[in-house]
Design a protein around this nucleic acid. Structure first.
Lengths: 189, 189, 189, 189
DNA sequence: TATGAATGAGGATTCATTCAT
DNA sequence: TATGAATGAATCCTCATTCAT
């Protein structure tokens, strides 16, 4: 007895949700999401009992995806600055190449529909960055910031950088480098 | 000329909207806003023909308020770093002391309910910061970033800082200083 | 102490009502009527305590106007057929030249907003036609129809004639003549 | 395929609309219509996306019904006068026996809620009458009227006749005969 | 499990009427 | 009397969710 609820359909719903929410906001009807996903209105609810549940799963999924993108081909043995740059580039690139996902994520984050627990789960896994900060501080490469604060700075500078790249794609490389430069000075020594 | 439209009522509606939206999101019923404002459901619509119009006005109002807060008692003759610090402190303080307004602003910004024109109007007036950046670059105090990029970095670091202060109010002073430190290094030389 | 409520304003409101109702139906807002009449929303209600009252007055006014139009320069001494033709022509012409009034009247007649009494008042004054029918029967010029039935036939054929003239104004004269011909045969001998 | 949309429910809604509109006008709430039809408020909108759509369908349905009534048991081989009389009687009877439908139809016709296309569709199918007129003219039985004008005369005289019968049901037979007599002379020779 | 019709609470907006000015 | 802001009931329609098929 294989899994009866097809993984495929679940994914289709999630993917549809990203598109729809990106351009109609969280108020978008579940019916529209189902439609784009190619399933019936009611079917959506066999995969996600509730719209809120769908939204929470969506958030978690997107966060996980971003995390994976950041960590893919992570050069564990490279020098600190290179590893940081690796993460930075991955973050920025993911954002630049997935504007709908990013927009949806933004809506979810400021919304009141994420359970506290969900939010907590989503924030995990940036531990690697925090480790790097601790390492940097120990090696005297970085100024002494609380590690989570430094990680948050990385994220916020990356977001700003992505915004500018999306607005002026021609200067993408400039902004990506300038952003990293700002980051390195902001938290480095 | 009958009863003139009262500035007071308009403000009450806007103030109510801030509270309600901060904790129920943009989907909050206009009826609830009117209720909190102490006016009839219909009255809201004599002041704002449409919920979207209300939202756009609200955005503009909050942006203006933040701008004023930042520029109040601006020490025009102080050294660059002090002027930047002044703006930084005002920004952070405003955010810390007006969490509902800030939350509402955040919702509005990621929403799809702001007219393009509104968004443009709202972004104006951060020119002062950009001027400072130009000045800093000229004086060789700052690294050469596009001025609007530097201004955006200020805003994003301030937001991050506010987040941390709200989460750990006891360390407010530390975060405010650390945040500025990060900013100064990020864009300074 | 002359009359304080200006007759002029009253008429302006009634005239505005005709236009507005003709193209937006009876559901048109009183505010819009007031606007077109050039008076304030509230002023309308000092002239007509209620929208229903306004509608009833409007009906009565239009009916009276049509009646007067029909009877103007009535050739009391002409032969029966000529007198009937006179009324016919006046009726048709009034309808053709006052399409908005006619449309409004039509809406009022089928609506449920006319008081029974109003409707009764409106129907009066077609007595002249009924007299003509009696006279015609007596003179053996007309077939024996109930006089009010004959009058109603006149009205309904006139309405139909007006409809066709409005749709094909080039053939106005043809239709007016053909319509009268039909009427004369319908009720005449 | 889940529950299919039931023809029954659709008809119930249409039937309810007739009753409600007949006595409360086109302004009658959809909720009341749904209520009388025995379905939920929302259900009405799965059958008719819009109140205007419902109204247009209603008009078309009633027109079709009237047309069918007129043509049922049409004696295609009878003499012209008998065929005309057949249509006349059917028309009048339908009106007399379906006062609510007739009242609703009247409201719809003068309203501004029928699409131009709807109105066009509704007028089709009175072609049979026009054919009869052509035939009558050819046989020298009728005076030369434009066929559509003659058809309109039939309708308007029938309506007038129905009005009188409804007001004085005791004389139904007289009016029906007198009305046809008027019609026959109006358009016949 | 998949479907989509059925449900009815809820929401933005309208509008006749009232009332402070 | 004239004005137009204030009122809140009423209206059309939406939408998450349920349920018969």
């Amino acid at each position: 007895m294989a899994r009866p609820k097809s993984e495929e359909k679940r994914d289709a719903i999630l993917a549809a949700a990203v598109q729809i929410i990106a351009d109609q906001g969280l108020g978008a009807p579940t019916a529209r999401i189902a439609g784009l996903a190619g399933v019936a209105e009611g079917t959506l609810f066999t995969y996600f009992a509730t719209k809120d549940l769908l939204l929470n799963q969506l958030y978690l999924g997107l966060k996980a995806e971003l995390r994976q993108a950041m960590m893919a081909t992570y050069p564990a043995d490279a020098p600190l600055r290179d590893r940081l740059r690796h993460i930075w580039d991955r973050y920025v690139d993911w954002g630049v190449h997935n504007p709908a996902k990013r927009r949806t994520l933004a809506q979810l984050i400021v919304s009141d529909r994420l359970a506290t627990e969900t939010r907590a789960l989503g924030s995990e896994g940036f531990a690697r960055i925090e480790d790097m900060v601790r390492e940097g501080v120990a090696q005297d490469l970085m100024r002494e910031h609380p590690p989570d604060f430094a990680a948050a700075i990385l994220a916020s500078l990356a977001e700003t950088t992505i915004d500018f790249i999306l607005r002026r794609p021609d200067s993408a490389e400039n902004y990506r480098a300038a952003g990293f430069d700002a980051l390195w000075h902001a938290i480095g020594r």
